[in-house]
Each structure stands twice: as structure tokens, then as C-alpha cells.
Nucleic acid binder design. Structure first.
Lengths: 417, 417
DNA sequence: TCTATTAGTTTTGTGTTTGAACGAATTGAT
DNA sequence: ATCAATTCGTTCAAACACAAAACTAATAGA
């Protein structure tokens, strides 16, 4: 009944916005005094004092001591993000494993877990229960005991309706229309995690967030993260926000048509990027003697990739040529991304990372050639420096980001015994 | 020195946000009472009264009289957007003409002008002066006399730094790095237009805005507008906001690589969309006997397009085949857009409109075939229903939009003699 | 020791939304 | 006709959050 598109502004809204601004300022300006925050935000010293007091009270910020850098005047009390209280939990559901990353507000890894799990065979309901178990074990860990939770994020290779947290379609998992957020919230109702906000999002989007906040290209506002798993997906961040499209299908870069009358793709068409530079296509051409008939899946993939790397390192012409060819197609796709989106970076994730030494040269060349903007609009293309389960970490980071951006869901009161 | 990313929230911010919310609510809910606005925004009746009073005072809203729909209780005083005071001016600079559209707050055309002008030959400085003349003549018109101005928007086929209003690069005009916004503001300094905010933006983006607000697909939040001029550009609106990319190059759809080793493009590469379905390519194949050597330009284009339509209507096989082929390439490009951006509509503008009867069938077919999402993610592709100078109107609409969205630049005080 | 300088708090003021109460205008029943 | 019920809009005091300026605190340097 309250049909406003974006809630009207009231007192609370102002307060929350400014709390977020101060929090973000403190994060970016590392240790800094209230006076610095006031100067760099435009708020008055008095207001900043009030806001900082509240942030300290909620356990988000702490004072680290005076600092006099040999300057005239009273030394300021330094402020830092408080890394020792709140924790954000990021989960990742993938075809053959579940991952969890617990990050503190400084985005340090407090805890990570990685368990084998066949989400396809188990089905969504069983998977949700498994996630619950994983979460309960995690919060019982001595490292997290009694630390309040910011929320839970779930990354999943699927089409997700973010507003409701529903998995609309997950082809690789064989799920359709499963209300994961709702189900998980229900399952956590009578546990220590009751009330913690649960979010669900696409894994490529959250991978992009991880690169945005944690990678070596951190704080790049316009970037594309390419997942190199069985399929090729893209997480697109434009102006720091994920690009979702009208119905959540945005970023299906794996199936853009690159070659008329090209090789058949699993999607039913021909000449898709995935059919030209997808993992399956690469492996079939790079290590033709080892790839079995039918779709390649599961742990076999890892060993085949490893073998591809081994042969390429030893100069095997077939493997090298296959990788260089794939790199060229990847470069043409990257040029398409550059021409349409003009990102400042394209990051190769997943299995593209170990293969990047052989993919990148031809990829960069093709990207430069087919970009309209001079110098590809200054777009760099590089392998991800984040390890596996980047999406889990990205999810946790997205929660922290929501805090910084002033959309803080609800930082729980901390002190005030 | 006030280095906040987004200004902190204060009183003014709250007030302006809420003014915008109320204004938008009144616009969308047509004639409605204060009580309805309060209910649908979540604001208090008292607050709404105060906000509406200010909007009326500024000439943005007016009361249209009581209405009792045979319901119990005191009848409400109906509110409507006031179309008779403020006017937004949209200018358009193109290769061979200047256009102007004056819109009132109801987005009705108060006045339009269209004058021939060779912006390439004249150069930017002379063009700015010409725009000044056009503006001064316009505001002197009896239809606009004494009506306060919301602002001036300039649409231009160029790379634009929107924040500073600088034309970075306009290949078709031969301009580079011209501070159009600054220059025009200076030129208007000692005229009746002094102080009016001036904005500059890319023509495709503003064309997209025009479709968003005024076309038959109005209020489609995620759409792509394809300009079919000499080049093919895309104005992309995602979630109602223009997509610009890191350096403003986003939307260069004309040069995405669609065919390996395809025909040469003016950009230096081969197989670009523009080389396959650009106007030049279409005309050369459709009416090969009439197209001269070298680039086709100026008014010749119009007559060649007209002749193409004539022949296609009469069933000329060469012309029809050329259009169908181009339509297929356009469809493959559209599929790429669908896969990457998942818009809910792609709109063909410019010269694509008269050619669309022959382009669209093959275009739709290819788009459906090469889209990953089922049914192309429900994306429609249709010709624009807006006439020429859509970008000029889009610019004016963008100014009005800024008001509605709460980013109101500064609605000038009106009454209070 | 005194002054200048910077940090942070306290105090006072201003602007905006809020909530409840009130007056206004209409319908429908008595 | 009169009165209750209902809905619309305004008024007024209160609460809230930021702004501005005065004030206290802590340091360096003369």
C-alpha cells in the first residue's frame, strides 16, 4: 500500500544516509580524525561527532588512539573500521561444492569453508538445509562466537530475482523457481541466526563485486567479470552497481553470436562465444586425446585444465594453438563488451586464470583491433587475482558495501548492555 | 575541497527529494487529491500540504477544482502538473540541421523549430552562436513570452563529458574538445536566458529518453534506442538511467564485430555491424545504380532512402534482398544486446524507421534465434514512433525528468510578486 | 608563560517532518 | 431539516537532525 518507488525522505533517512557517508569516508581514509571526516564530507564537526558516536556504539567503528604528526594543535583521535565485532557471511552454491566466507568489516577473512556437495543431485530443498547446517557450524566456531552478524549472502549460478531472493532458473543445477531467500530465512528462524537478513544474487555479479572491492583493480566503477566455468557468464558493474536488465538475464555473454555458421553450441545455436572459447571447446581442441564423448563435467574438468596447462608449458603446438584461437574469440567478445559498455576493466575469472598466459596475448590483440574507441577506451583485460569462491567473498563484501552506501539494512545495536 | 562522492543529506536535500517525489506522484497519478498523494507516498497529509503549496507557488502544479465521485466525505481538491508556466528547451545539433523543441511540464510541444545548418563547415564556435540566436528567437516568440525556463538541453552526435558539458569528440562534425556547455552559458549571460541551466548530452542517449518518456513503450525502464543515421549508435537506458561507461564510449554498437573477415568498415576494421547494416551499406546494395563513389552524405541520403522505399514497395528484388540481409545482421546485433543487457525493448530510430517494414521480419527472426533467454527475454524490437528531432524532445524531457526524480536543478520561484 | 593552532564538545538556532486535533465539505439516514 | 458519519485539508505543538558559533582541550613554538 505504500507504493512509493523510493521511500520518501524523513529523519531516519537523513540519519542513515549520513551514517553511511561517514562510514564510507572512514573506510576509505583509513585512520583519520573526526575533523578530517568533517572536512571531507562537508558535514559539520558537531554532526560528525554525533554520527561517529553512534557508529562506535554500534560496534562499526573504533578509536585507535591519538596521533600527532608533529603538527601544531591538539592531536586528533584516530578512527578506524572496527574489524573485531560484526561479521558478514557469504555463501556460494556451485555445481559440485558449497563455499562459505566470513569477512569482518575490514574485509579480512575470518573464516572460510569449502565442502563438496552435489547441488544438482540434492535438489534445492536439501541444498537449503545443507546451507543451514553450514551456517550453524560456522557461527558456532570459536572465531565467530558471540560476534553479531551483518547478514547472509548466497551466490548461485542462476537467474535470480534479487528483490524476492528467488532462483528463477539455474540450468546447471536443474533448479527452477525456488524461493531460496524465503526458505533459508524460514530454516534459520529458530536458530542463533534468526533475523539475519538473507540475500541471494547471481554468482557472476558477486564475483564482479569481489573484484570491485578486493581485487587489484579495486574501486573500478565500471568493470566486467567473466566467469570461466562450464559456461561463460558476465557480471557487469556499471558505476559500481550490478547491471541486471529487465528480467535478470543481463550478462549472458556466453551466447553472443560471433561467427556465422560457426560450431554448434549447447544452447542450440551456432557460433556462440561459448562454442568458440568455452571450456569444453578449449579442452576438446587442446587435449583432444583425453576428452571423452558427451559433456565434460565435475572434477574431470580440473585435471584436464591442469593437463592443458602442462602441455602448453612444454610447448605442445596443439594446446598452444587451441588456447591462442580461443583467446582471439575471447578478444572479439571483449571488444563487443568494450564497444557496448566501455568498462575500464575486464577480468577473467574461473578456469581462464590458469590458462591466461596463453589466452591473453591474442585476446588483447583482438580486443584492441575490434574496439571502436581508441586504445579500447583504456580498458584493461586481466586475470583475476582472487582465488576460488570469489563469489562467496563478493557476497559478503556486497553486504558490507550496503552499509557503506548508506543502504544499511540494520546494523544491530551492539553495546548498551 | 568538499570531496564527498554524493553530497551529504541535509534539510535542503530532504525537502528537494520529497518535492520531487510528490511531483512525480502527481504526474503519474494524473488528477489526484493531496490525500491520495499522502497515501501513496507514505508522507503525512501535513507534509504533503506543505510540499504541494511550494510546488504551486513555484508554478509546477495547479489545482483544477473539486471532484466528488459520489463518495461520502469532503471532496478533494484535484492537483495536476501545471502545463502553462514552465518550459523546457531541447536543442539538437546534427550534421545538416539544428532543431529545437520547447515542451511544457506536461510534455506537450509548445513550439518546434528546424533549421538547415552545416555544423561541420561552420565549426563549434559558430554553431554555438547559431544556437544562441535560435534560443533568443524562440523565447521571443509569443507562445513563450514571459514563461520561465526550466533549462536548455543540447543533444549532439558526439562523445560528451556530461558533467562538464564538453564535446570530447564528434567525428561526424569534426569537432574535438569543445566546451559547449560553458560556451553557451557564456553567450547567454546577458540575455533573457541568463542563468538557465545548460546541459549537453549524446543524441542517442536523449533519443532513448524520448522513447522512455514519450514513445509508445513509455516508461520502459530498460531499453535500447538504435540511431539509424550515417552511423549506428545506441542509447542505452538501464533502470531508467543512461548507461555511459567509464569514459562515455558506451553504446558504440555500430562497431561490434559480427562477421570474421567481413566487409571493410569506415572505422578501419572489418565485419562491423555498420559495415553490414549501416545506411551506406544498405544503400549500396539496395540501389547500386544510384550510389556515387565515396561516402554518401547530406541530403542525398534522404532521396536515396526514399528511392529504396519506393523500389522495395514495388517489389524490386535487389532492394528487398538488401534490406532483408541487413535486417538479419541487425537481428544478430540485437541478440547481442539482448544477451548482454536484457532490455525490454529495442527501438529502431532514424532512417531505420521508413525501412523497417522490410528490415523487421528477418531482424526479429535472427534476434529470436540468437538470444539465449527464452523469447529473447520478452524483448520487443520496434520502429520508433517519434518523428525526427526525437533527441531534441528527449533533451527537454530529461530536464523534466530531473525535476520528477528529485534532482531538480532549481525550479525558479514563480509567483510571490 | 603566552600565543597560535587544531580537535572535539556544548549550546543555541533553524528547518522539516510528524502526529494529533480541528475545521470544512459532502453523503445518507432520521 | 437535522444529525451522524466520513473524508479532505489545515493548524499547532513536539520531535528530530543538522548548522553555526562559542567554548574547552591539547599540543607546538616563541
Amino acid at each position: 500500500m505504500v507504493g512509493a518507488t523510493e521511500g520518501p525522505a524523513g529523519f531516519q533517512a537523513v540519519r542513515e544516509t549520513n551514517l553511511g557517508i561517514v562510514l564510507r569516508t572512514i573506510r576509505t581514509s583509513a585512520p583519520c580524525s573526526r575533523a578530517v571526516v568533517a572536512a571531507s564530507t562537508g558535514l559539520t564537526k558537531a554532526t560528525v561527532s554525533s554520527l561517529v558516536a553512534e557508529l562506535i556504539d554500534r560496534g562499526l567503528v573504533c578509536e585507535t588512539g591519538l596521533v600527532n604528526e608533529r603538527r601544531v594543535g591538539r592531536p586528533g583521535m584516530m578512527l578506524t573500521i572496527n574489524g573485531s565485532t560484526l561479521v558478514a557471511l557469504g555463501l556460494e552454491v556451485n555445481v559440485d561444492y558449497l563455499a562459505l566466507a566470513a569477512l569482518d568489516l575490514l574485509e579480512r577473512e575470518v573464516l572460510t569453508r569449502h565442502v563438496a556437495f552435489d547441488a544438482r543431485a540434492a535438489g534445492p530443498e536439501e541444498c537449503a538445509k545443507q546451507l543451514k547446517t553450514l551456517l550453524l557450524e560456522t557461527v558456532a566456531d570459536p572465531l565467530l562466537r558471540d560476534r553479531p552478524l551483518l547478514g547472509v549472502s548466497v551466490a548461485i549460478p542462476a537467474l535470480v530475482d534479487v528483490s524476492s531472493g528467488t532462483v528463477t532458473n539455474a540450468p546447471n543445477l536443474g533448479w527452477r523457481n525456488f524461493p531460496l531467500q524465503q526458505r533459508l530465512t524460514e530454516l534459520l528462524a529458530d536458530t542463533p541466526l534468526a533475523g539475519a537478513p538473507v540475500r541471494v544474487d547471481n554468482d557472476a555479479n558477486l564475483g564482479a563485486v569481489a573484484e570491485y572491492r578486493g581485487g587489484h583493480l579495486a574501486r573500478t566503477m565500471d568493470l566486467v567479470y567473466l566467469t570461466g566455468e562450464v559456461g561463460i557468464g558476465a557480471g557487469v558493474l556499471m558505476n559500481g552497481e550490478p547491471l541486471r536488465g529487465a528480467s535478470g538475464f543481463a550478462g549472458e555473454v556466453g551466447h553472443i553470436p560471433l561467427l556465422k555458421d560457426g560450431p554448434a553450441c549447447a544452447c542450440g545455436q551456432d557460433g556462440c562465444l561459448e562454442a568458440l572459447a568455452g571450456l569444453d571447446s578449449i579442452l576438446r581442441r587442446a587435449v583432444p586425446d583425453l576428452v571423452p564423448e558427451g559433456p565434460v563435467r565435475g572434477s574431470v574438468v580440473e585435471s584436464l585444465v591442469a593437463e592443458t596447462v602442462r602441455r602448453a608449458e612444454s610447448g605442445d603446438a596443439t594446446a598452444v594453438q587451441a588456447l591462442e584461437d580461443a583467446g582471439e574469440w575471447l578478444g572479439r567478445a571483449a571488444a563487443t563488451l568494450v564497444n557496448l559498455l566501455n568498462p575500464s576493466a575486464i577480468i577473467l575469472g574461473g578456469y581462464f586464470v590458469p590458462l591466461s598466459p596463453w589466452l591473453l596475448p591474442s585476446c588483447r590483440e583482438a580486443m584492441a583491433a575490434y574496439s571502436f574507441a581508441p586504445n579500447s577506451g583504456n580498458c584493461r583485460i586481466e586475470p583475476s587475482t582472487l582465488g576460488l569462491s570469489a563469489a562467496a567473498r563478493g557476497g559478503a563484501m556486497a553486504l558490507i558495501d550496503a552499509l557503506d552506501t548508506g543502504l544499511l539494512p540494520l546494523p544491530p545495536g551492539s553495546s548498551a548492555a
